[in-house]
Amino acid sequence: MNLSQLTPGERGTIVSFTDLEMSVKLMEMGCLPGEIVEVERFAPLGDPIAIRVAGYQLCLRKNEASVIIIS
């Protein structure tokens, strides 16, 4: 299951990434394996999404969220 499949209010734990290049950027922003992420809200048009991770709010497109594998 990946992060883009969650709906607002749902949470999961980051397991791994499916895209190496994107993983560097996401990890620099605090999305580390083992971190808990919670989807806070979708943008009015459904994309991008805002998530709560590592004590702050991060927005990313569903595209990017789909490389984050969660459990």
């Binding site: 290049e21 922003m29 991008p48 702050y56 709010q57 991060l58 927005c59 990313l60 990017e64």
Partner: peptide, 11 residues
């Protein structure tokens, strides 16, 4: 490169 959008949402 691929277009991406990763942004901190400040309070």
């Amino acid at each position: 490169e691929k277009s991406y959008f990763i942004m901190e949402m400040p309070v």
